[in-house]
Design a protein around this nucleic acid. Structure first.
Lengths: 220, 220
DNA sequence: TTCATTTTGTAACATATGTTACAGTCTAGT
DNA sequence: ACTAGACTGTAACATATGTTACAAAATGAA
């Protein structure tokens, strides 16, 4: 299972067995809704998702949260926060479902980095991608109005689905992903509909004016 | 000079000579205002500041920009964006002053990573810190009102300076750092003043009600 | 089916921030 | 000392988003 994790790209599971034989590790289970780690907490172990799903979300003191991402097997988490002078979680990690996580202590991880060149390379790639991901988040969260974010989101969905888009998330979820309130998101959706850019009916959305949506991305 | 760069912590300059002897590199000069790299451009080299100062800023199509950071010697730049599947600059890099930059091609950098354990370690630490930095940016940009950002900024400044704070940046600069407009920033400053939290007169600011400022951080 | 719960639609209103504009002030260079 | 250019203070107004509230609709469990 572990060998599917992008961190172990290019490492066969038998090689992995050898690499890890003498390294201590742990497997932890979490119930749905349980918190795996809290923002500010020290990050001592690499974590790799085995089962279930967790999310990382930032929360301010007043309770407003924005979701940064979902993480599902076989992806690792906290990769970019184990090292550095301030090795703390920047987000809360919460189980979306009953989940199982593989834990490898920082020290073991250092050993692994020395033992396996592919692992090292994967690690550097992943950590770099994280920086890209976070940069993109900043852009997304700061440079778009709600309509812009919606347009972005819908156009992205459209490229993977065909024609009609079926939202898999509730408006509530979308709102926290966008860092806005639910009524505001609803209003933006309605506006896009009224402006004739989309045909929205409950969870089903049809893009009518692709050009118009793309203009929103560039406009504000 | 290079040996002062955090990437070469623990490497003496004579060791550095040996490490780099056969590696090709480049030194480039940029005039004030010149663009070193554009957002979206591929990132092929590690860059290390030798002289001057540059800034990284995100810009949307309409021209609104927010400054992410200033980078000055002997700091490296683009460290976190050389690797990963999408090795592109997420920001524009612009010279604040006439500047000089050391360029090490990606390939040379890979060699260096293999040759020097301290370099590798520094690299991983720096790249991790970048992820932390970006996370903090997200928090800062999304969870604070303008007043909150100001409070944050002022409290931070106060800890380094004594008593009276002298702003070194213009309101215009602060505004782009906060991702807001200049009049809005001015208004926020005035509000803090009128609310009796600070005594602001031109560039000189005196914190009067520290508790009040801290409350702003937690409030919104 | 029926009922409880979640999700959605929507409205009135409050607030924060952007936009534009202009005048006052400071500062550096001549 | 004078002037051009930048910076600051501020105002009126426009707009986007948040807040609160409630009803309609959908969904899922009994």
């Amino acid at each position: 299972m572990l060998s599917k994790c992008p961190l172990f790209n290019g490492v066969t599971s038998s090689e992995l067995d050898v690499l890890m034989k003498d390294l201590p590790f742990q497997i932890k289970k979490y119930a749905k809704g349980q918190m795996l780690a809290q923002s500010g907490e020290e990050c001592r172990s690499l974590m790799i998702m085995l089962k279930g799903s967790v999310r990382g979300e930032m929360m301010d003191v007043s309770g407003k949260a924005i979701k940064i991402e979902d993480i599902e097997p076989p992806k690792p988490l906290a990769v970019a926060f184990i090292f550095g002078q301030n090795n703390r979680f920047p987000v809360n990690i919460i189980a979306n479902d009953d989940s199982e996580v593989f834990l490898l202590p920082k020290e073991s991880m250092l050993i692994l980095l020395q033992r396996s060149a592919p692992f090292l390379k994967n690690f550097m790639n992943i950590i770099s991608s994280r920086a890209q991901f976070l940069s993109d988040k900043i852009r997304f969260l700061n440079f778009q109005t709600i309509k812009g974010k919606l347009a972005h989101y819908l156009l992205q969905l459209e490229s993977s689905q065909q024609g009609e888009i079926i939202l898999t998330k509730s408006q509530e979820e979308l709102a926290t992903l966008f860092g806005v309130t639910r009524p505001s998101l609803g209003r933006a959706l309605r506006d896009l509909h009224n402006d004739g850019l989309i045909e929205a009916k409950a969870k089903s959305i049809l893009i009518i004016d692709r050009q118009g949506l793309m203009a929103l991305l560039r406009k504000d």
